[in-house]
Design a protein around this nucleic acid. Sequence first.
DNA 1: CCTGCGATATTCT
DNA 2: GAATATCGCAGGC
Length: 199
Amino acid sequence: MQRRLSKHFFLRPTLEVARDLIGMRLSTDIAGKRTSGMIVEVEAYHGEIDEASHAYGGPSSRNKVMFEEGGHCYVYFIYGMHYCVNVVTEQKDIGAGVLIRAIEPLDGIEIMKRRRGFNGGKIFNLTNGPSKLCQALSIDKKILGHHYLSSANIRIDSFRKFPAVDIASDRRIGISKAIHLKWRFLLKDNPWISRKAGI
DNA sequence: CCTGCGATATTCT
DNA sequence: GAATATCGCAGGC
C-alpha cells in the first residue's frame, strides 16, 4: 500500500474519487498540534449535472476553488457558525468535489476533545459529522485553497484499503435538490459515521 | 429511542 | 427576504 498519493488520484471522475477516499487518512497540523482520522463517510458533488452542488451555475467568489485542479481544499462556512471541508476533483475549470462527512480519529484524540469541548457523553460526537470533524481538526477558511499533497497544514494519504462490499452508497444528507442521487459513500457498520445507510 | 427548534452569517434570488 | 452540503439541546415517548 502506497503512502504518498499521486496528484492524478484527484483528477479522476468525482464518484470514483469519493469511493476511494473511504479508508484514507485526513491529517491537519495546526498551531503545532497534529490530529488525524480515517475517512469513513463522504458525499460527491458535481456542478455540471448536480443542482445540489455549490458549483452548479458556474464559478462565483464563494465556489471558485471548486474549479481549480483536483486535489485542492474547498472550505465553506454554513448556518452562520459551522465549516465543512471538501476535496476538489477533476480537471481545472470543472466544478466538482467531495464533502468529507465523518472520520474515525487516529492521532490527537485528546486535542480533539479539547477543541470540541468534550465533557463525557458519546465519544463518536467528536467527528461523526462534517462540521464536527472540522472543529476537531481545526479546519476553517485559513486552509481554503491549499493542496492536499503540498500543504503544511492539511494532508491526505493512503491508509487502509476496504473491499467494495464494505462500502455502501446512499442518498445525500441535508439537501433539498437532486435528492435521488446516491452519491453518499460510507463504511458500513463503522460507529463513526454520521448516520446509518438507508435500505 | 425519537422529533422539533433556535442559533447565527454568508450567499443567493 | 429566504435558504442553507449543521449542531446541540429540550422534551416526549
